[in-house]
Design a protein around this nucleic acid. Sequence first.
DNA 1: CGGTACATTGAAGGGGCTCAATCCACGTGG
DNA 2: CCACGTGGATTGAGCCCCTTCAATGTACCG
Lengths: 251, 251
Amino acid sequence: MPLIQRLAHYIPLLPDEIAILRDLQSDTSKVRRNRHIVREGVRYDSSFVLVEGFVIRSRMVPNGSRQVINIGIPGDLLDFPGSFLESAMYSVTSLTDVVLSSISHVQLLSLWKSCPSLASKIFWSFSSDAALIIEHLVDVGRRSALERIAHFLLEFHARLRIIGWADDVSFPMLLTQEILGDVLGLSMPHVNRTLRQLREDGLITIEDQRVVIMDREALDTLADFKGRPFVRFSLPDAFQDLPGSAADTPP
Amino acid sequence: MPLIQRLAHYIPLLPDEIAILRDLQSDTSKVRRNRHIVREGVRYDSSFVLVEGFVIRSRMVPNGSRQVINIGIPGDLLDFPGSFLESAMYSVTSLTDVVLSSISHVQLLSLWKSCPSLASKIFWSFSSDAALIIEHLVDVGRRSALERIAHFLLEFHARLRIIGWADDVSFPMLLTQEILGDVLGLSMPHVNRTLRQLREDGLITIEDQRVVIMDREALDTLADFKGRPFVRFSLPDAFQDLPGSAADTPP
DNA sequence: CGGTACATTGAAGGGGCTCAATCCACGTGG
DNA sequence: CCACGTGGATTGAGCCCCTTCAATGTACCG
């Protein structure tokens, strides 16, 4: 239950809420590698929780290139902000074999009545997705290739750690250099050269498809990465305490 | 009441909802030109509706440059996704003299109980902000300077039109070229040259601080601008009809 | 009338792109 | 078991878009 794990990493979840979340993810479906899950321009009336596997959300541009908006990892709620919009504004494609659980928009929104405290936590999750995109915008707009890649690696590492896919200093390299280029607005050859430079400078190594962070401090400085202090749950207590007392949940 | 105007442009608002919105914006405050309204890293417990004037939301990068996330125009709800986060992830600065109306997060969230249909409309508004940022990301990541500027001008024109600040073919140029550069990840001289090229190609003219669109079709093509079809309200009827029947409101 | 803010233009350089070749690991079928 | 195909990584050469640095122009304002 990576969604629960991810939320709980930031916010104490009440037993009730966990039960509801479990329930929401009851019917799952599988999608093979390299398939479209959501297609740009089409309308959907349910969102998806990514239970297993990885996806990319991307937009094509007429000149032939594409921009990857975001890498979806287990526990992510796909399709924000699409949930509220007329039609999907980007495609979602499976990067690996994937297990999804769909949640209709009606279900999602009715949470505001049945369990507002949980709803607020889910909307917090949307906010932190938006925050991620803003970070991404800053990356692409105002950082050099070296800074961008460093920043992306650190951010991705942080996200993977929360769901148990990374240890303190390393994580699996799930993206091809081509995709990494589409994420960061760079060409594939330049991604390659920049990664090499990071290696030569002793900041990272890459072995067996894993990225190993060799010099955390230098990377943090280079990327101006301050952990992710802003991405933390913060709502009026009135909303955290609704269903019962604000007890912690067992880990 | 630009917020009401903006929402109503997309979504029929019920009389009740309009009354509540009016009420929310009752106490206003003024801020002079070039002042900080929200400062990066600080925590706030209320959001703002921008009633009059223009603001920029931006992030500084250690190398001295900054990235403008978004231009706030009258009717915008500032501080998303900040509302849910521990601390502001970007600064908000007044571009002109400004009239704000603050809405505490508690007030905002309690709408989900007191008037869920309105709440869903406000959250739709957040979604469309997020959509704007995604468009922006695509711009900066994968479009040439010419395409970027064209796209920005069209998008900005569309937004200004909704609140009555633009006519069919022209709108006031509210940004300096320096700011435009910070929006689009370009240097000021290059913004200048690119604008000149757009002029020389007969796509736009700039006179008396107004941008005039001379060749709409060519601009649309260049920028791959398709109006903003995805930014349209779309929610299960269950949520649109809660307080009464789905009657239109008088204009 | 000098000061400030912004627009404009030029020259030179570099970061990142394009195009293209090569290499490597892996899987698959004969 | 090997030949081959395929997807991805790596590397090189040349170029161009955009940046940097710097100077000049221009409007407005106290």
